[in-house]
Computed example of a mutant assay.
Amino acid sequence: MKVSITEDKERKIASKEHNTYVAEGIEQHKITQIAPPSLLKPFSSNLKCQLLSHQQVIEAQLYKLIGKPFYSDEGFILYQGDSSNFLQKIDSNYIKVDLTVTSPPYNIGKEYETPMSVEEYIEWCSQWIHQIHRITKPNGAFWLNIGYLEVPNKGLCVPIPYLLWDKSPFYLLQEVVWQYGAGVSTKYRLSPRNEKWLFYIKNAQEYTFNLDDIRDPNVKYPNQKKNGKYRCNPLGKNPSDVWEFPKVTTGTKRSSKERTGHPSQFPLGIVERVIRASSNQLELVLDPFAGSCSTGIASVGLGRIFLGFEIRPDYCEMAVSRFEEFKRQRANNYQ
């Protein structure tokens, strides 16, 4: 699709010399589906039986510890309430988490947040992270998506990882930068176009990391050789610590079908990569700030069991509706 030039040709943004999108055109926007095709693939009868059995065992233990879930079906277990209360009650002798993937409130004034001072916020984060560490398996992992906040008299857009990285009993393996195209426009500073994911593990010597499951086949020189041998792994390259995933979009013609009414929804593609890398089928994936349950849908689609906590009942209803639609699309995909 070519960009039509209807304004002054002297403007750089409308010039073929300066703007490659004008010179070469841009791809037509395509509305995304409710879930990537990779999450809609059918499971074997054996895996489905194993998932059901595992879920029944986990649910029985959870019922004793924290009561009946808000919703439960096909590997998707959701509780409505304060995650700190739930985490405190869970006995690590009965429930062990393989992977936690979450994005907590950033303390920036969203509708679902209770305002706190920076000190209070960091202390609160440290408390629930310690609770997660207690119930995480020895080889388990914890992926934390966090953005920026203002530190009074110190900085406007201070990355929360700078404040939080050492307030955890987990071992910080690395920071992953999530880069995206759309976002807030600014006039007196650079427009923010990234967020951070902190990749924590419990044991620095032994942890789950399935690199072959997330390799990127989009290699610039796939047939390059050294000493007569191909240089690149036949499955593709390591995707590196900078990930390019578009944000979940809004708008009449641009809206992603996976879009819900939640104001801070991260895309299924990015959480799918995290779950593939740091867990295996039949394992338990936790999201203590479940929101629209992107972690839940990706977990179920990949043959894991999901446990989510969400404090707001309206978000729980939203997540259940989303999961039900995901199940319908998945069933149709099987046919």
Score class of each variant (00 low, 15 high):
283 E>Q: 14
236 G>A: 06
55 Q>V: 12
103 S>F: 05
92 S>K: 13
310 E>R: 01
144 L>T: 03
121 Y>L: 00
71 Y>Q: 09
306 F>T: 02
16 K>A: 11
212 D>S: 15
73 D>M: 09
245 F>Y: 15
285 V>I: 11
233 N>F: 00
282 L>T: 13
246 P>R: 04
49 C>R: 14
9 K>N: 10
216 D>K: 06
306 F>D: 05
185 S>T: 13
109 G>W: 09
178 W>Y: 03
202 K>R: 11
218 N>K: 14
256 S>Y: 13
37 P>R: 08
329 Q>S: 11
191 S>R: 13
195 E>D: 03
278 S>Q: 05
71 Y>A: 03
324 E>D: 04
96 K>C: 13
204 A>R: 15
335 Q>A: 12
119 E>F: 02
333 N>H: 15
315 Y>R: 12
112 Y>K: 02
15 S>A: 06
259 R>E: 01
174 Q>P: 00
314 D>Y: 01
154 K>M: 12
207 Y>S: 03
212 D>N: 12
19 N>S: 13
6 T>S: 14
182 A>M: 13
114 T>P: 04
174 Q>L: 02
165 W>R: 15
124 W>H: 12
134 R>W: 00
279 S>H: 04
172 L>K: 14
178 W>T: 08
143 W>R: 00
231 R>V: 15
43 F>W: 09
275 I>Q: 07
176 V>L: 03
197 W>P: 02
234 P>N: 09
9 K>A: 12
273 R>W: 05
215 R>A: 03
327 K>T: 10
